[in-house]
Every structure is written in C-alpha cells, then in structure tokens.
Amino acid sequence: MNRGEWQRRAMAALGYWLARRGSRQGNVIDRLACRVLERLLRFDFDLEDRVRHDRGYDPDELERYQRAGSDGRK
C-alpha cells in the first residue's frame, strides 16, 4: 500500500467513525463527534430561498384546504 492510499484509508476510516458516532444520540463521545462534524462539514449550500426561508403551514390552513380545497383548481 503506497503512502497516498494509506492516507486515504486512514482519513476515510476516521471520517466513517465520526459519522457513526455523530449520528447517534448516546454518550459524551457521540455528542463530541457531532460537534466535530459540525465544524468539519460547514458549507454554504445553495438552497433555494423558498426552502431556506420556509416557515411551514398553519395547521388551520391545512385543515381548511383539506376540507374544502382552496387552490381554485377543484
């Protein structure tokens, strides 16, 4: 195994370990792994504004919509 492959393996193994621990709500190590991931994975993805700023629906609005249909397409 050459040096480059060894490095890739080591990094992949560490990343995999962090992902497994960081995706679990268990002990303090899990929470620490999650914090490390938070730092490592910071990224400004180009979410749509409609998605980024979505506030969801009002339950009454959904209720009314379900009962009567309010979109004018019916």
């Binding site: 990094m11 990343g15 992902a19």
Partner: peptide, 14 residues
C-alpha cells in the same frame, strides 16, 4: 457511507 465527511473541507461561511 453517504454523509461521512472528508476531513479537510473548505471552511466557508456557514
């Protein structure tokens, strides 16, 4: 694994 991190990501505005 999907979501397993590369460990030297560019740090960008979060």
């Amino acid at each position: 694994m999907p979501g397993s991190p590369f460990l030297a990501p560019a740090i960008r505005l979060f």
